[in-house]
Design a protein around this nucleic acid. Structure first.
Ligand SMILES: NC(=O)c1ccc[n+]([C@@H]2O[C@H](COP(=O)([O-])OP(=O)(O)OC[C@H]3O[C@@H](n4cnc5c(N)ncnc54)[C@H](O)[C@@H]3O)[C@@H](O)[C@H]2O)c1
Ligand SMILES: NC(=O)c1ccc[n+]([C@@H]2O[C@H](COP(=O)([O-])OP(=O)(O)OC[C@H]3O[C@@H](n4cnc5c(N)ncnc54)[C@H](O)[C@@H]3O)[C@@H](O)[C@H]2O)c1
Lengths: 214, 214
DNA sequence: TACTTGTCGTGAAATTATTCACTTATTCAT
DNA sequence: ATGAATAAGTGAATAATTTCACGACAAGTA
């Protein structure tokens, strides 16, 4: 079962949480049946890609019928380990960090920020979105066994904090700073570079003109 | 005046703003020469990929020497149209929207949020990060000829606001809502789905141990 | 000058991802 | 029951991207 899991293409794996959320929404709306075509229109992913993605996990649907929403949802809940909660730490309670604390990824989601750190004493001791802000100096004492961190500190602090996080046992970092941080092979980093995203959107608009109106 | 054939691969185009920012930083630091290997280590992009990416624009380097930082930077400045400013509108001045307004993508960047809209009268009339917040009802009157929008409204409003943006002439949207919005062929949407990013990081940590990607 | 070193640019190979298009199982209407 | 419609699952084709690995050439050195 586990060796099978490793065979799933990364591109597929990245879409799984999206599938899960849409199925959950369909389930909440009371829909019991759905086709790859419907999913395709809702999620803007080609229907063949959806069928292909699902097929890596076996035959989850029925020919001529489609997919049973509840069954599929249950399958993905297990696959995405939605039953165990994953605690997350947030470092840097500034503009972005505060936004994340207030939002806290609560809906359809097993991830939750459980602790936050900042270097600014005016922020320490406060609670934002029910999460207490600790001083960064006490990070190691307050991390517990959390292995996932969201990094929203100034770029100049990014590598230094990263090193400390890794020493403290963190193995996954969602990095919002523009720094391309250096980590050992055993640590996974996903970069979300908002300035790059905006610039690249503008570049595509200018250089890859799209068809006009359907 | 623009857009030669779609010669440049999309994967390459997405990395261009990253290259630009790093070159700019090197230039500021007074570095005049750089190799693909150095760039690779700093940006965590394979050196062959960097050379390949650059080569789509011609022979920008010198064998045995590397790249001249100033020349390369100037080249990408033109390529990325860094000399013309691109005004951006932000819709939804909530947690995320406020963070973006305060930050405003100012450094090394030709994009700037110039106007913001919200439905909440308590927010209208205020200025955040020097950007005035207008009422969403007056959006069309205050958009001017802005063609890029950042969407940070509640998911339930996403499609409705999108339709209005497009009618008002917007052709590019950076969508932070979980909604997969429907747009005509002529409009480009980049989705940044933060909950999906976090969940997918966790999935990769659990199922792809000891490998690094991106 | 001649030799050594460094590094680009790029064909070719490898890998990864998407899409086509067809077979087959199932449902549904009559 | 029967036939038409539907839609999954998938082999094969195609497309996109990355990576290998090497020839060529500039720069530095003695
Ligand atoms: N806000 C945005 O819209 C935006 C957009 C793109 C990128 N970013 C990046 O995200 C990061 C955060 O941005 P922001 O706007 O929230 O910045 P911010 O300055 O508002 O917040 C940074 C926070 O980190 C804290 N901090 C500083 N040093 C620290 C340390 N050593 N340990 C712990 N906390 C420390 C500060 O006290 C502050 O609260 C930055 O790297 C920025 O470049 C932000
Ligand atoms: N904040 C996060 O960390 C986070 C993370 C992931 C996704 N998101 C998504 O980003 C979006 C914004 O999140 P947020 O936390 O900033 O939400 P928020 O509720 O804090 O902000 C939404 C803002 O939009 C305004 N608004 C409501 N209806 C509007 C309308 N019709 N026109 C204009 N403005 C309108 C509200 O007044 C509010 O100020 C949401 O769709 C959310 O799902 C946010």
């Amino acid at each position: 079962m586990m060796s099978n899991q490793n065979k799933i293409p990364q591109a597929t794996a990245k879409r799984l949480p999206l599938y899960y959320r849409f199925l959950n929404n369909l389930h909440i709306k009371g829909k019991s049946r759905v086709s790859s075509k419907e999913l395709s229109e809702a999620m803007k992913v080609d229907s063949a890609t959806i069928r292909r993605d699902f097929s890596y996990f076996g035959a989850l649907g029925k020919k001529g019928y489609g997919y049973n929403v509840e069954y599929l949802l249950g399958f993905f809940r297990k696959t995405l380990d939605q039953d165990e909660n994953t605690p997350v730490a947030l470092i840097g309670v500034g503009n972005l960090g505060t936004a994340f604390l207030n939002y806290n990824f609560t809906k359809n989601n097993n991830t939750k920020i459980e602790v936050a750190f900042d270097a600014d004493k005016r922020k320490v001791g406060k609670s934002i979105g029910d999460i207490e802000v600790h001083h960064i100096e006490d990070m190691e004492q307050n991390l517990g066994d959390i292995s996932v961190a969201i990094l929203t500190v100034p770029v100049s602090e990014a590598q230094n904090i990263t090193d400390r996080l890794i020493k403290a046992g963190v193995t996954g970092i969602l990095n919002f700073t523009p720094a391309r941080i250096t980590v050992p092979e055993s640590v996974r980093v996903h970069h979300i570079d908002l300035a790059v995203e905006l610039q690249s959107l503008v570049y595509f608009m200018k250089h890859y003109p799209l068809e006009n109106e359907e």
